[in-house]
Amino acid sequence: MSTTPFRHHQHAHCESGVTANLLRHEGINISEPMAFGIGSGLFFGHLPMLKVAGVPGTTYRLWPGAIFQRVASRLNIKVHTEKFSSPDKAMRALDDVLATGKPVGMLGSVFYLPYLPEAFRFHFNAHNLVAYGKEGSEYLISDPIMEDVTRIAPADLVKSRFAKGIPEPKGRMYYITGTSKDMDMAKAIERGIKQTCFFMFAKPLPWFGNTAIFLLADRIKDYPKKLPPRKAALYLGNVVRMQEEIGTGGAGFRYIYAAFLQEAGQLLKRDDLAELSAEMTTIGDDWRHFAYSAARILKARQSDIVSYDELSDLLRKCGTQERELFEKLRKLKW
């Protein structure tokens, strides 16, 4: 049985936060931005045909679940991941691992986590949290987006772990089974950056990567012409929500990524990474400017065509700058 008490650190994003907290518990000192960058979390996607609650889907990061796995494999860390056919089995397996003193990462729906503020509790099924113990019947929870640790009743945890919809967590849990002395940070950083560049320029699908920013820019221009005002406002509002709602660290994960580039630059003593970090910060500021401008239009309830045109231009600017930045990142010599 492990005697190390679990130390909770608040992070911006659930998955990179859980990853950093679990690794730190094993004595690997890694920051959230580092986990996010090595795990190739950054992305952009806009899917007009995939409607979530009647609104087109927009994402600023890769589909959840991959960061932890990638970080583990790139740092030579052994992990165990398991999903379950029934809540009974899932809870028993969780109890068994907790009894050994090991903290356990889990996937669950935000809707069934009573400790989170109601304003954020939608049916988002890919939230990550850590259980680090049990007291009485209650589970001790470290949720990285919270300032401090909390607790949850077993019935609520079951509901969250076995939420239905897309994706279904099916009680998925994961924990670290072994670490290695043979950890090559430089190689892990390189692989993380290369994969992000690959995804950003993934062709020929227009809905994914850098080109999707321009797709969204074109669509937004058309919102006031093609949609009733209420719908246009909801579509636009959703883009901003995905970018700025809790869990992105600001500017749709662009600031976390800039922090990663900065830390990587320091670690590897590379000025080029430091410069690219500063560029990413400026791009993040432009995303924030887009969000701010969009919210101003929504608040004033104006949906005149001029303002949507301006938003479209702001997005194109973000897209162009990001394309240049990822071209440079892609051409880095390692």
Binding site: H11, A12, V240, Y255
Partner: peptide, 20 residues
Amino acid sequence: KYTGVNSVGWEAENVVIKQA
């Protein structure tokens, strides 16, 4: 240097959450 900072919210974000 990058650092984590706590925020109680941002007007732009609050507007779109309230809208939803």
